[in-house]
Design a protein around this nucleic acid. Sequence first.
DNA 1: GCCTGCATGTAAACGGTTACATGATTCG
DNA 2: CGAATCATGTAACCGTTTACATGCAGGC
Lengths: 186, 186
Amino acid sequence: MKPRSSRFALLGLLALRPMSGYEIRKTIERSISNFWNESFGQIYPTLADLVAEGLVREVPSKSRSRLFEPTEKGKKELERWLAEPIELSVSRNVFLLKLFLARFAGPEATRRHFDEFRAGHRERLREYAATRVWLKSALRSSAHLAYWLAALDYGVAESKALLEWAGTAERDLALTSTKNEGARRK
Amino acid sequence: MKPRSSRFALLGLLALRPMSGYEIRKTIERSISNFWNESFGQIYPTLADLVAEGLVREVPSKSRSRLFEPTEKGKKELERWLAEPIELSVSRNVFLLKLFLARFAGPEATRRHFDEFRAGHRERLREYAATRVWLKSALRSSAHLAYWLAALDYGVAESKALLEWAGTAERDLALTSTKNEGARRK
DNA sequence: GCCTGCATGTAAACGGTTACATGATTCG
DNA sequence: CGAATCATGTAACCGTTTACATGCAGGC
């Protein structure tokens, strides 16, 4: 995640079709917000940088929005970045941190975290299902479809697995807690 | 992840046993580095902050390392934080971003990403298995064991699911790419 | 006329990593 | 003796989020 991937995210989105900063934000929200986000405070300055570097150019627009598209150089740069190897970075997981320290909390708190965790992932699965239907009809002939479905299924696989894990994990925890009934805290 | 969780991570680790900044770093590396990391540049100033707020105090030490432990107030604060609900945040996923944009890259690049992705998760599973063995013997009587194993299993479940996903996803992609043989790019 | 959504941007603050500086201790 | 590791800390930088400021357009 280190090497300024925001710029490439923007570059990639503009490669789909010319867009304004505002449209980029909306598009992200509707498509990749499950694994990627950009704020306006990031988008507009980055867009200016990309233009300054000749990776993106502004195209004339009838409306008051400023449309941008990648230049040839920009497309090359995008391809280069896409081919670059990915270091799988460790993203912080507050849920796991709290589980790791759960001995210091009451069992009620942990149970609530598990409940919310499950609810969250069930909700995500519902969203994914809706997105899947929509994608298939809206992008019937798009060359991107297969990749976008694959990305969607990543989320589905993850949430399903974590839901299952949550079930067994909580049952296991209940078992050991009844065994050492009494003493809490360290 | 928003509200300064670093401080609580340190507080939680110090609740396990009094530690120096250096030891905190080492402990993180050996235990929760799969889902949490702190750098020295973060640890030492945060430790100073925690002391200034009366959540942590320094305990005398024979060696040249400065040992810290949570105060009563600190323990209370930790418990309070542990009970707080968790908003499941979206962490950026470069792999998925590249998959989403894969139409702009060559199929070789995508194949390589998948290979590395699989290799990475297989490696993780190997590490998890080793950690599991070690944990069970080293913490046989610890009240933390059950939680730590649960946290470990989270990673196992995730990696297993993603390995499976990668297999089917790549196969699906291969199918559609042979169907639309010829045209690449947009 | 007013509210919502469209639209662009800036400034400040934040959380975090990296690099640097320094020196003691331990072990081969 | 020299290298690795222990140990503490600071400064600079980076990417990102949040809040703020501004104003137009379209529909109720």
